[in-house]
Write a protein that binds this DNA or RNA. Structure first.
Length: 471
RNA sequence: GCUCCCUUCGUCUAGUGGUUAGGACGUCGGCCUCUCACGCCGGUAACAGGGGUUCGAAUCCCCUAGGGAGCGCCA
């Protein structure tokens, strides 16, 4: 039997990290076992489902690179099938019509709460003959006694007493099918062998198994993965900032970093932290997934993102960096090759956005010197060094503007002045970058270029002169 | 309220009866060094609590506490 898994989001918002991880686990499980991964859009809630959400989910899946073999299937296109199944259940006496008014249900619920018992439908209409032409819903006739066992790949055996379960509605009064019916029909029809989903569905599972049995269909294997919490340990929500997968892209995270972060949330393989998608496919084991919820930790995501930024192909990072440069009003074609900038800077940034910020100096003059850096390095004692550097740089031909020669110039000046490299390189760095942090001084000079270097040294010299006269 | 699920450093986790309870992020200290990063080395820090079972429990059982989910004509 070929393994078939599915990811079945409801399009009522963007693809959030919790959903993305569930999708990843489903994807990995299918790939691991040489099976197929299906995408199904559960859009039966006509009120809340939107096309934008569908697109956002599709976009998120594509960005993450979670390719599905079939779908997207839309439940709204399968209403005939659901109705066929419901009618079948009705004919076989496994479901029944119910016209209990809302008021009665509410009162029932209140009474039960008052009596401290679990609120549930009392099966009032099971034995009544409800007029099919009057408004009504269809309820599934859940077995009254016995035990349903959910054998979960992550949690093990979870027995539920049927007595705890009530007769749930499978068709609304407007004729539309409900969730618990549609998942079951779809999973069965689509040949889903392993249902991997959030653990908020645990309580639905026994009911779904009962429907499956009533239908005479195979019960899939289940795996309920724990939730993802926010940094503060509370349930992930809008107030935790970015929860939508696409907002991570916008902030400059790499999909492989997010995927790597997500796979380690709840799952591990010994002490290994870095996993390529290929390795995940090879090593993933759904049975090894943790049972407890885990908190989303942006610091660790940042670390992974920096790692991937650092080790990825510079040309690819350059391509991804380009729009972030654009946001800063920079056209990368007006300066050094972006890939060269990436090579020099990638280890220094946690995100593409940060990479763009710290690289802006390669393309445009900065507004002002960073105050602390200037105070520390652009002092009168540095004037001599900057003047010598300027003179030396000015004399260099454009063809000689290379790392080795540039480094030699800086070294020579420090030797002439009999001071340490730092006394020369730091003022120079602040002069041409605007602040005290940048790649190696010769690399930095390469990126800035001769013209801007001279221009900015002049600016630094003017700054020092101003300080001197003010003193 | 009822049913179900969960509980190892701040965070992600390893651990399946015998370990100095390991790794990673963060944090702190150091090395490297022209700066910042990267990298490397080292420190800090955990078995929720209480009972059992056992020669021996993070590991097995029970209780308590805490957290979460579900109890919809939402999915």
């Amino acid at each position: 039997m070929t393994v078939r898994t599915r990811f079945a989001p409801s399009p009522t918002g963007y693809l959030h990290v919790g959903g993305a991880r569930t999708a990843l686990f489903s994807y990995l499980f299918a790939r691991r076992h040489g099976g197929q991964f299906v995408l199904r859009i559960e859009d039966t809630d006509l009120e809340r489902s939107t096309e934008e959400s569908v697109n956002a989910i599709l976009e998120g899946m594509t960005w993450l690179g979670l390719e599905y073999d079939e779908g997207p299937f839309y439940q709204t296109q399968r209403f005939d099938r659901y109705n066929q199944v419901i009618d079948e259940l009705l004919d076989k006496g496994l479901a029944y019509r119910c016209d209990c008014p809302k008021e009665r249900l509410e009162k029932l619920r209140e009474d039960q709460m008052a009596r401290k018992v679990k609120p549930r439908y009392d099966g009032c209409c099971r034995t009544r003959q409800v007029d099919p032409d009057k408004p009504h819903v269809i309820r599934f006739k859940n077995p009254a006694d016995g035990v349903v066992v959910v054998d979960d790949m992550i949690r093990g055996r979870m027995p539920f007493n049927n007595a705890e379960l009530d007769d749930l509605i499978i068709r609304r009064s407007d004729g539309s099918p409900t969730y618990n019916l549609t998942v079951v029909v779809d999973d069965a029809d689509m040949g889903i062998t392993h249902v991997i989903r959030g653990d908020d569905h645990i309580n639905n599972t026994p009911r779904q198994i009962n429907i499956l049995r009533a239908l005479g269909r195979d019960v899939p294997q289940y795996a309920h993965v724990p939730m993802i919490l926010g940094d503060d340990g509370a349930r992930l929500s809008k107030r935790h900032g970015a929860v939508g997968v696409m907002s991570y892209r916008d902030q400059g995270y790499l999909p492989e970093a997010l995927l790597n972060y997500l796979v380690r949330l709840g799952w591990s393989h010994g002490d290994q932290e870095i996993f390529s998608l290929e390795e995940m496919v090879e090593l993933f084991d759904i049975g090894a997934v943790n049972k407890a919820a885990s908190a989303f930790n942006t610091d660790k995501l940042d670390w992974l993102n920096q790692h991937y930024l650092h080790h990825a192909e510079p040309s690819r990072i350059a391509r991804l960096l380009s729009p972030h440069m654009g946001r800063l009003g920079i056209d990368p074609s007006t300066g050094p090759e972006l890939a060269e900038v990436v090579k020099a800077q990638a280890a220094r940034a946690k995100t593409l956005a940060e990479l763009a910020e710290i690289s802006a100096f390669c393309y445009q003059d900065f507004e002002a010197f960073d105050e602390t850096s200037a105070k520390k390095h652009l002092r009168p004692v540095a004037r001599e060094a900057l003047e010598r550097l300027r003179a030396a740089f000015e004399m260099m031909a454009y063809e000689d503007w290379n790392p080795d020669d540039l480094k030699r110039v800086v070294e020579r000046v420090s030797e002439e002045l009999e001071v340490k490299m730092g006394k020369v390189a730091q003022p120079l760095r602040v002069a041409i970058v605007g602040r005290a942090a940048s790649p190696g001084i010769e690399e930095t000079l390469m990126l800035v270029g001769k013209e801007a270097t001279l221009r900015r040294i002049d600016k630094a010299l003017a700054y020092i002169a101003e300080r001197e006269s003010a003193a």
